[in-house]
């Protein structure tokens, strides 16, 4: 809506925009500012945004394995997120090509079945999955998390990739088939190279979901050496040794990789989000 650009409406717009930005950013500002505050400044009232004596001690504490196993949690999150995203991408490349280009009876039933997953939240699956994981002898392994996360991200990955594959002109694929390529060669030589940005985005989407996940990790993992970041950080919060500045530094370091990854593919992911909605 393009209103009349009077000075009054401009001022109202700027004020409202500032309020929205303040609401969005205050937790981030607090987090970053406290991560640089020495302990005696943490409890100051009124709270200050810029610390009087900024310090790096909390970051040094977080990164020192003798004080805080942050790096080990970080490594576990990295391994789990990398493998879930990688396996998820491979499965959804094949699946979404099958949906987008091949014709067979039952295809639309399967497509609708995949969407059904929206109706089952993690909390409905955690009890039966815990029983299954235990029976399979996968309790307290990273594998249990990887296989769970792959399935959680499949519906959105299939949707995003399928949409992208449909934008590859069918005539190119047909020409390649007439030239003697098989369908699989078409996928690997033509569709995949053309879809590289979509594939990277789907990988990052799945990576973010796995990096963020708490519920399944808290149930499937027991050993402290296998904890992922959300799990490890939350458990440390409930010990008496937590230090606010250190928790904030850990939060910042946990968020940074994900925010960088997101910003690098923002346009593509938000495009995918607005068309399909996204499973949380």
């Amino acid at each position: 809506m393009v209103g009349k650009d009077s000075l009054r409406s401009k001022i109202i717009f700027v004020v409202l925009l500032m309020l929205v930005l303040a609401f969005v950013l205050i937790p981030f500002v607090t987090m970053i500012s406290s991560s640089f505050k020495p302990n005696q400044e943490q409890t100051q009232l009124p709270p200050k945004i810029i610390p009087d004596n900024p310090t790096l001690e909390h970051y040094q504490g977080v990164l020192n394995p003798d004080i805080f196993p942050f790096l080990n949690y970080f490594k576990n999150s990295l391994i789990v997120a990398f493998f879930s995203a990688g396996i998820g991408v491979v499965i959804s490349i094949f699946g979404s090509y099958s949906f987008a280009r091949l014709e067979y009876t039952g295809r639309s039933v399967i497509q609708r079945g995949v969407l059904m997953v929206y109706m089952f939240g993690g909390v409905l699956l955690v009890i039966p999955l815990f029983q299954m994981i235990s029976k399979l002898g996968l309790f307290d392994t990273r594998t249990s998390l990887v296989i769970t996360y792959v399935v959680q991200t499949l519906p959105v990955s299939l949707y995003m990739l399928g949409n992208y594959f449909r934008t590859v002109p069918e005539s190119i694929e047909e020409a390649a088939i007439i030239d003697g390529c098989s369908r699989l060669e078409v996928i690997f030589r033509i569709v995949l190279p053309l879809s590289a940005p979509a594939i990277v985005s789907v990988f990052i989407y799945a990576f973010m979901i796995a990096w963020n996940e708490y519920l399944f990790a808290s149930v499937f993992i027991n050993s402290s050496s296998l904890r992922t970041l959300p799990l490890g950080l939350n458990q440390l919060f409930y010990t008496q040794h937590y230090v606010w500045g250190r928790m904030m530094a850990a939060s910042v370091l946990t968020a940074i990789p994900v925010i960088i990854l997101f910003l690098s593919v923002e346009r593509f992911i938000t495009g995918g989000l607005t068309f399909g909605g996204v499973k949380e």
Partner: peptide, 9 residues
């Protein structure tokens, strides 16, 4: 942002 970071903030 990861839930754990946002929740701590």
């Amino acid at each position: 942002t990861p839930v754990i970071s946002a929740a701590f903030g």
